[in-house]
Simulated assay, not measured.
Amino acid sequence: MNNGFFKNAEKLTRLEALYEASKIAFAPIVFQVARALRDLKILEILIENRDGLTIEELANKSELSIYAIKVLSETAISSNILYEKENKLYISKVGIFINSDEMTKINMNYNHYVNYLGLYNLEESIKNKKPEGLKVFGDWETIYPALSSLPKKVQDSWFEFDHFYSDSGFPTAIEYLKNLNIKTILDIGGNTGKFAMELSKKYPKIDITIMDLPQQIKLAKKNIYEKNLTNISFLEANVLLDTLKDIASFDTIWMSQFLDCFEDEQIEMILQKIKSSKNKDAQICIMEPFWDRQNNEIASFCVINTSPYFTAMANGYSKMFRYSDFEKILKKLNFEILEVVDNIGLCQSIIRIK
């Protein structure tokens, strides 16, 4: 699938290329200034004062010093967050998105609280194939068993980011599954149980089982018991270490943003285990945000730039998929691709295979 994204690099003039390089060199500073402008309510104040404010007026309304406003606003002007006209500061469309757009706010919180400190160790993570950045929060091999123990703002930002991108696809995905006439479904990597709960509430006659690590099952059980849902059960398992002999009774195997937590060799092993353990007539549905199947470059950019999180923070070896790479894995294992459905929620695609 050729979407034509990211084709401008070869067209840049020498001066344009130097400017882009300079933006990248100062990107961490611009990021933190933008976040400070948002969290210190400076952007909000300027939204409420569309006729503009002088530096002195903005300092007074924000209860910050003139020095602080000058430092923050000058970087903001250089990065198109604010603009200046007749000695007054105004918020731009970029600033409005930073302050008010839900996706931008979630991405910014995720990168600040979850990734920022750990990405200092990206080079070390690349060399060692380990999430060396995770040590800023504690001593874990991967982030997944750590999720319930992370500092609250880190945990909240992680789940908010994860749920924002996956949850948007749940309504369409649930209707898609219903049209397959499923009766029993295994949700591998069910995480906190959000997908299972949505499916259960919409179609209570479907028997749903969540399979995940013990720590995640504990979180899912707590969420599900609070909702008093009775058609959801649980299987504690590590798909890398355990056999999957208990999955033969399911007519559908579901994996939503699960396989992107593994490297190619592990994905092959997991799919091979499923293939040899499942009911011979069962179908497998995989939902992932493939960056080369997005319908716009913004979505593709956001998906691609989630990959360094996996390297530095999550596990050291997985990434977001290019569909053409994932397709090669399926063909190598002799799976038949029945269909691929794009534009599920914000950024997901569903692959149905046998």
Results as ranks from 00 to 15, higher is better:
Ala68Lys: 15
Leu119Gln: 15
Gln266Val: 01
Val154Tyr: 04
Ile350Asp: 05
Gly95Ile: 08
Ser256Lys: 05
Arg38Tyr: 07
His163Tyr: 09
Met320Phe: 09
Ser300Tyr: 05
Lys275Thr: 02
Ser168Glu: 07
Thr243Cys: 08
Ala34Tyr: 11
Ser233Met: 06
Lys135Pro: 02
Asn8Val: 11
Lys222Cys: 04
Lys205His: 13
Leu46Cys: 06
Lys273Phe: 04
Tyr309Ile: 07
Gly190Ile: 01
Leu64His: 13
Phe159Trp: 15
Pro308Thr: 10
Ile182Tyr: 01
Pro145Asp: 01
Asp264Met: 07
Val136Tyr: 13
Lys93Pro: 05
Leu37Cys: 12
Leu46Trp: 02
Ala299Leu: 14
Ser166Arg: 13
Gln257Phe: 06
Thr243Asp: 12
Ser62Arg: 09
Cys302His: 14
Met103Thr: 13
Lys85Ser: 11
Lys280Met: 08
Ser148Cys: 04
Gly316Leu: 10
Thr230His: 12
Gln283Gly: 10
Lys221Arg: 14
Thr54Met: 02
Gln294Thr: 05
Ile344Thr: 04
Met313Ala: 08
Asn107Thr: 08
Asp281Val: 03
Tyr225Ser: 10
Ile126Pro: 04
Tyr110Gly: 06
Ile344Glu: 06
Ile96Tyr: 13
Lys278Asn: 03
Gly345Asn: 07
Phe310Val: 03
Ala27Tyr: 12
Leu271Gln: 03
Asn228Glu: 14
Glu57Gln: 15
Leu240Pro: 06
Gly118Val: 08
Asp260Cys: 05
Asn295Arg: 12
Ile29Ala: 11
Lys178Gly: 00
Ile126Ala: 00
Ser256Asn: 14
Ile286Pro: 01
Ala314Phe: 09
Pro28Gly: 08
Lys278Cys: 00
Glu132Phe: 03
Lys222Leu: 07
Asp264Trp: 04
Phe161Asp: 07
Asn107Tyr: 08
Ala9Ile: 14
Glu327Asn: 12
Leu46His: 00
Ala312Trp: 14
Lys93Met: 07
Thr230Tyr: 14
Leu37Val: 07
Phe335Met: 02
Tyr67Pro: 03
Ile185Val: 15
Pro131Gln: 03
Ser324Pro: 01
Glu297His: 07
Val303Gln: 15
Ile174Arg: 00
Lys88Ala: 02
Ala25Phe: 14
Asn3Val: 06
Leu259Glu: 04
Lys153Gly: 04
Pro171Trp: 03
Ile208Pro: 03
Leu15Lys: 15
Glu16Gln: 14
Met287Glu: 10
Ile232Glu: 00
Trp158Asp: 03
Ile337Tyr: 07
Gln348Val: 02
Tyr176Pro: 02
Ile210Ala: 00
Glu84Trp: 07
Asp260Thr: 13
Tyr176Phe: 14
Gln294Arg: 09
Arg50Ser: 10
Glu63Asp: 12
Leu53Asn: 06
Lys127His: 05
Gly190Lys: 00
Asn2His: 10
Met287Gly: 10
Ile45Gln: 05
Phe250Gly: 06
Ser22Tyr: 13
Gly4Val: 06
Thr75Gln: 14
Met103Lys: 14
Ser149Lys: 15
Leu346His: 11
Leu177Phe: 10
Lys129Val: 01
Asp156Cys: 03
Ile253Phe: 03
Lys280Gln: 10
Arg14Thr: 10
Glu123Tyr: 15
Gly169Met: 01
Asn228Thr: 08
Tyr116Glu: 12
Phe170Gly: 04
Phe6Asp: 08
Glu16Asn: 08
Asp246Cys: 00
Gly190Tyr: 01
Ser276Ala: 05
Glu102Leu: 12
Asp264Gln: 15
Asn315Lys: 15
Pro204Ser: 09
Arg293Ala: 06
Ile208Lys: 00
Tyr19Leu: 11
Met103Tyr: 11
Asn111Glu: 11
Phe310Lys: 10
